[in-house]
Amino acid sequence: MTDMVSYPDVVQLAVPIFIVAIVLELSWIVIRQRGGRYETRDAVTSLIMGAGNVASGIILGFLAWGFFMLLWAVTPMDLGSAWWVVVLCFVLDDLRYYWVHRFGHRIRWVWASHVNHHSSQHYNLTTALRQTWTGTFTFMMVVRAPLILVGFHPAMVLFVGGLNLIYQFWIHTEAIGRMPRWFEAVMNTPSHHRVHHGRNPRYLDANYAGVFIIWDKMFGTFVPELDSEKPDYGLVRNLGTFNPIRVAFHEWVGIWNDITQPGLTMYHRLMYAVAPPGWSHDGSRETSKRIKARHLTENPHDRGTPGFDQAGK
C-alpha cells in the first residue's frame, strides 16, 4: 500500500494566478470595449463565494478525506504513483466530474449546491470562482469511490480534481471566441462552456464537461455555441440578491419550504428533493424539459436544431 503519497494543494497555489488573470481580463475588456462585462457587486459576490468554497474545504474537507481513507484502507488495489497513473487518474476523474456535474443539474439536492455557480448574470473569470459552500452535503463524494477502490490513492484523486478545477478557470470568459478546431473537438473551451452557462432554452442541460468535451459527445449532451444565438447567462429565475449567504443557501431553503408544505404525500416530499429542478407536485413550475417544449411550441422551426431534438425535448 502506498500510504505516504503527497501532492500540493494546487487550487490554493493558483490563487495569485486567478487574481492576476482577472485583472488582465478586466483590462482587456475595458481597453478593447469588448470580450465580456464586469459589475462590482456581481464580481465581489463571486469572489466571496470562491473564498467561502476554500474555507468550507478547510473546515469540512476532513469528512470526504476520512471517507476516502476508509476506502483506501479496505481496497486491496494500489496502482502506485507513476506519472502514467496520474494521467489515467486525471482522465477518469474528468469522467467522474462529468457525471457529478450532470447529476448537479438533474437532481435538485445536488443542484442546491451547484446552483450558485450559475447564479451570476455575467460570464467572466470571477464567475469561475463562484463556487459552492455546501458540496459536502450533496454526498457526491461517493462518485469518487470507484477511483479509490480500483487503486488510485486519495491524495492523487484530490490532486487531479484540483487540476480539473484550475483548468476550468480560464474557460469562463467571453474574451476568447473559439480555439483551433482540433482543440474545440476534444477539449472543453470558453465557447462550449458559455453554452453550459446559458439560460436560453436551447442551451439548458448541455455541455457538462470539465476538461474533455468528448464526454458530452459520447453521452449525447453536447450543444455547440451558435453564432446566431448568444448565451443569456444566469438562472431561469435570476436571484434578487447579492448577499453571499442567500446565494449559498437559497435552493436549500427552497427545498425545505417545498418539502414541508402541508398536504403533500411522502412521494411528493421526496420528489421535491431529488427530482429535476423545476419539478412541482401540481405542475405549476417548469423543468428544463418543459421550458424546451414550450419554446418549441412557440418556435416550431427550432425543432431538430442543436439543443432541441425531433421529439421536442
Binding site: 487574481i19 478586466l26 464580481a43 465581489v44 469572489l47 473564498a51
Partner: peptide, 12 residues
C-alpha cells in the same frame, strides 16, 4: 484572498 477581493472591488 482578502487583499485580492478588496483590490478588485476598488478597481471595478
Amino acid at each position: 484572498v482578502v487583499g485580492g477581493i478588496a483590490g478588485i472591488a476598488v478597481l471595478l
